[in-house]
């Protein structure tokens, strides 16, 4: 059975999720991958405010291909999440509630997910053309100079993913 969830997720929603559950997400989320995470990290270290409030938000690790005319976005599948591990506990401690990516996370991230009652979803790597069909709107947010790595706000409808690490620290990849 697929659970239909709305973004932003509530703490109650997150508590009901178990590693391995299939879900769909509908609402708004932000994109950010390697270079944007590095900038977030440096900004926080320098005492600066982030370009958007991460509290209760969802970040999707993606660097899309360009959109053809008539498309909201180009192919946009998840990138490997472990490269964001260094920056993730900081964002979780600032209130980020969910991440979407693919693959394993390190113990620091799992611990921060548990402490903050957050959740990590996996989308299917390499299913970029299919996934892009559930992204209906794309607005640039910041760091446009980063090209495909710029931060955008996506509106998604029935975006398919799987609970990879739940708020209790259960990890689908450790089964």
């Amino acid at each position: 059975m697929v659970k239909k969830l709305s973004l932003p997720l509530t703490k109650e929603d997150i508590k009901t999720l178990k590693a391995g559950d299939s879900v769909t997400l509908t609402g708004e989320l932000y994109t950010a991958r390697d270079a944007a995470h590095k900038r977030f990290y440096d900004m926080v270290q320098n005492g600066e405010k982030l370009p958007f409030d991460v509290k209760n938000q969802t970040i999707y690790y993606v660097g899309p291909a360009p959109a053809k005319k008539g498309y909201a976005v180009g192919p946009a599948g998840p990138t490997s999440s472990y490269r964001m591990d260094k920056f993730t506990p900081m964002l979780l401690n600032m209130g980020l509630s969910a991440m979407i990516g693919k693959g394993k996370r390190n113990d620091d991230v799992i611990e921060a997910i548990k402490e903050n009652g957050a959740v990590y979803f996996a989308a299917i790597g390499g299913a970029a053309a299919l996934i892009s069909k559930s992204i209906v709107k794309d607005e640039p947010v910041c760091f446009e100079d980063l090209g495909t790595e710029a931060v955008h706000k996506y509106t998604v409808v029935d975006f398919p993913c799987i609970v990879a690490i739940d708020s209790y620290g259960n990890d689908v990849y450790k089964r």
Binding site: P64, A65, P75, A76, G77, G126, A129
Partner: peptide, 27 residues
Amino acid sequence: TAKSVIEQLLENNRIAKKEQIAICQDT
């Protein structure tokens, strides 16, 4: 789950071919 993932990959590749868009964003 495994069946569903494979089905989605096959569907993804059909969409990419039909619409001539990239199979994966990482080109």
